[in-house]
Structure formats: structure tokens, C-alpha cells
Nucleic acid binder design. Structure first.
Lengths: 222, 222
DNA sequence: TAATTAATAATAATCGATTGTTTCGGCTAG
DNA sequence: CTAGCCGAAACAATCGATTATTATTAATTA
């Protein structure tokens, strides 16, 4: 009753894919280590076939490295790669934000306000981090959603996954965190005012600061 | 010999992946149709497991659409999607070309000249199209190769796959083809002269013309 | 001793069979 | 007629076992 929901059915493949994706982003695997497939099989209590299908997908997304006849490895964390990812985020999210501000309608404004509010209210306490991360990802996705390009959004999502691998590895930086949180609100304001130039500049600064935080993770573990 | 050879071993998975990728790009599957897995199994004489792993990878790359419990479908060809892909190509390849011209060294210049020459000499006769396509892809890859961003190159490669699905569906246009071929040579000249502005403009025009050609494929089949 | 090869263990990849879900055609009730 | 409900057939997903390849260790030789 109620909603005639589609998408009720999932598969073991896609469930383990989601789980592994989260665990990879959250750094629950040591960077650079080889993935022991049969160990995963036990750890997640899943069959080999769906597991291997998920690993193949993750490799295609760049969250794993696949080498013929020798399985999968977790990509190592390299400063040069973080630089690349951050730089691409600046370029692509800047582009997307500009377009979103041009194309976004009233409905977008509402959803953006809602997403920002959810994020602001979310707690960052250790046991609530997952929830905060969810709202944070949602906010950034909503911000650029009406950019008009499915491919641009796809690339940005991929870059976020990569970036978060680094960010979550980094030590906390409360004072930067406060600035970043404030910027979320400011981004909404500028978006509503349709101030493209300032919004892009702020987004650039936002990513740059996040980058600085994430960088500590690479530097400390190197 | 200097280089220790790599990639000697392949797997059934990656072989069928390469084959299917080519066949999808070449339009050997009807756009929008459901993929009959067991039919592919026969057609390519391959087991279910490697086949499914390949399909999962292709879906992650955007060359197939995966729906839980109902297998895989070949994406349909939509004008709006072609517009998106072409626009993204303009943005990303323009960006990459600019950086490549800034960063490319003498070795790059040599490889670029070589790639352009191979392409020029390649025959476009029906039975040699595969070879021409190979050299064409190589040329464009070489052109932007030293841009310094692995992620940018990855995105561009993905867009090329998508774009080519449309282009190869389109009817031949010999007079546009001549212009496009000439532009390859001009792109090399401008790159060697390090004329960033003109090179970007020409690349933009090149993609725009290719887009016009590819568009005929969508319009005629619609 | 160091290098090379042979034997063995570990594990990645693949196969064949089974299970579970969706689709489709006919049937029935309203 | 038409909407809804079986049951059968088709097909996607998954499992358990097997094969092929790589990694490790021991043995052998220069």
C-alpha cells in the first residue's frame, strides 16, 4: 500500500557494491594493499560471483585497481593524485555551479535550502559521521544538480568519491571545519542571488580549503 | 630492449570486455535493445561468469545500462545526450589541449607528428575502417596526453567512446570529412607553435563539425 | 654463495548447475 | 470487454566445484 515503489528488488551484487564503495571511501581498507577476495567473501558473508561483479564495477569506477590474473588492489594515496582530483573538482564543479545557477528554478532553490538546513543540523559526533557525510554529499550534489549535463554530474560524483577517500583519512581540523560549514550557507546565498562570479570564487576557495585538510592525511601517512 | 614487457597475460573477462566495447561503439548492437546474455554467450563462445563481469564493467563505464533483476540494456541514442557529450568534449578537450601545449616536451612533439602521419596515411576504405579508427583515437589521445591530469584523460576517453557510438552510426559526409582530416594537421601545427588560443579555437571547431556529422545519425534514425 | 630451477601452496578465474525473479499468456470475476 | 490473478516459461543471479595462473619455498647447480 501507499507508494507503488519500483526498485524494491536489489541484488547481492549491488548490495555488496554499495557496501564496499562506502568502506573503500571510508578508508576501511589499507591503501595499496591487495584485496584478498576469499577474505572478503567471509567478512561480508557473500558468494564469489556477486563479489567479483562488484569488484569489477568498483575497478571501472576507479576505486580499485584490477590486474589480470592477480586480482584487485586498493589504490594507494598519492599527493600528486590528490592534487589532480582537487584541481579537477575546481574546474568541473565550478563549471557545473555556474550552469546550475543559470538553469536552476524555484524548485531547485527550495531543495537547496532544505539540503543546506539538513546539513547544518546534522551532528558530526563520531557515531553520526555517516549521517553527516550523507547530508554533505547530498548538499553538494543538489548545488550542481540542475547544471544540465548528466555527464558532468557523473564525473563530479566520481571525483567526490575519490576526494573523500583522502579527506576521511585526514586528521580533524575543527577551525577549518567551521569555515567550511559556514561556506555551505554562503554558497546557498550566492546561488539564490544568482551571483555566478562570487559563487564560483567561493566554490574554488571551498575546494581549496578542503584540499588543504585532505592533504594532511597524505603528508602524515607518508 | 629497454622496456620490460608487461600485460602478457589476459583473462577471458578482459578479452570479452574489449570485444564488446568495440562492438558497442561500432553499433553492432541495436540501441535501446535488451542484451540477451545467453545469446551473447553463444555468439562469443564464452562462459557466463567472464561475460557478466565484462557487462558489469561496461555498465560502470556507461556503455550499458544495468537494472537489477532484469539484466542489461544498450543505451538508446538521444539527441539531448549527444549534445551533452559534444559540449563536454569541447570543454574538457579544450582544457586538456591547453595544458598539453603548456606541458608537452620535445618527445611529445615527435609522437604527435608520428601519430598525425599514421592517421593521414591510413585508409578509410570499408575494410580498413577499424585501422583508421584506431589511428584516429590514438591521434586525439596523443594530442592531449601531456595535460598532466590522469582524471581529465580518463573522462575524455570515456566521452570519446560515447561520442563514437553516435558518429559511427551517422552516414558518411565526405566533404566534411576532408575538412576534419585537414584540421588534424592544423592542430599539430598550432600545437608545435604553442599557439594555445588558436589551438583551442580549432579544437572547438573540430568537435563542433564532428558533432554536426554525428547528429545526422540521430536525426535519420529518429 | 648466488642464481636457477623444480615442486608446492595459494589464489584468481572460470565452469556447470541451481535458485530466485520477472514476464507472459490464458483464465476468471466483476 | 477489462482488470486482476494464477501458473508456466524465460531469464537473471547466485552457488559450489574445478581449472589455470601466480607466488612461495625447497632443491640443485655453477
Amino acid at each position: 500500500m501507499g507508494i507503488p515503489e519500483r526498485q524494491v528488488s536489489s541484488t547481492a551484487s549491488s548490495r555488496i557494491y554499495d557496501t564496499l564503495r562506502q568502506d573503500l571511501i571510508n578508508g576501511r581498507f589499507t591503501a595499496g594493499e591487495k584485496v584478498a577476495i576469499s577474505a572478503l567473501k567471509e567478512r561480508y558473508a557473500i558468494g564469489l560471483s556477486p563479489l567479483r561483479e562488484a569488484l569489477n564495477r568498483l575497478a571501472a569506477h576507479g576505486l580499485l585497481i584490477q590486474e589480470n590474473q592477480r586480482g584487485f588492489r586498493v589504490p594507494s594515496l598519492e599527493r600528486s593524485e590528490l592534487d589532480d582530483i582537487a584541481e579537477m573538482r575546481r574546474e568541473l564543479e565550478g563549471m557545473a555551479l555556474e550552469r546550475a545557477i543559470r538553469l536552476g528554478d524555484a524548485e531547485w532553490e527550495s531543495e537547496l535550502l532544505a539540503a543546506a538546513h539538513r546539513l547544518k543540523r546534522a551532528d558530526m559526533a563520531p557515531d553520526k559521521v555517516e549521517e553527516w557525510e550523507h547530508f554533505h554529499a547530498c548538499f553538494h550534489r543538489t548545488l550542481v544538480a540542475p547544471c544540465g549535463s548528466a555527464w558532468l554530474l557523473r564525473f563530479i560524483a566520481q571525483l567526490h568519491d575519490q576526494f573523500d577517500r583522502y579527506r576521511r583519512m585526514a586528521p580533524e581540523a575543527p577551525e577549518v571545519r567551521r569555515v567550511l560549514d559556514a561556506q555551505h550557507g554562503e554558497l546557498v546565498e550566492l546561488a539564490l542571488e544568482r551571483d555566478i562570479k562570487s559563487a564560483r570564487a567561493l566554490m574554488d576557495d571551498h575546494i581549496q580549503r578542503s584540499y588543504q585538510v585532505a592533504l594532511q592525511g597524505v603528508l602524515s601517512s607518508a
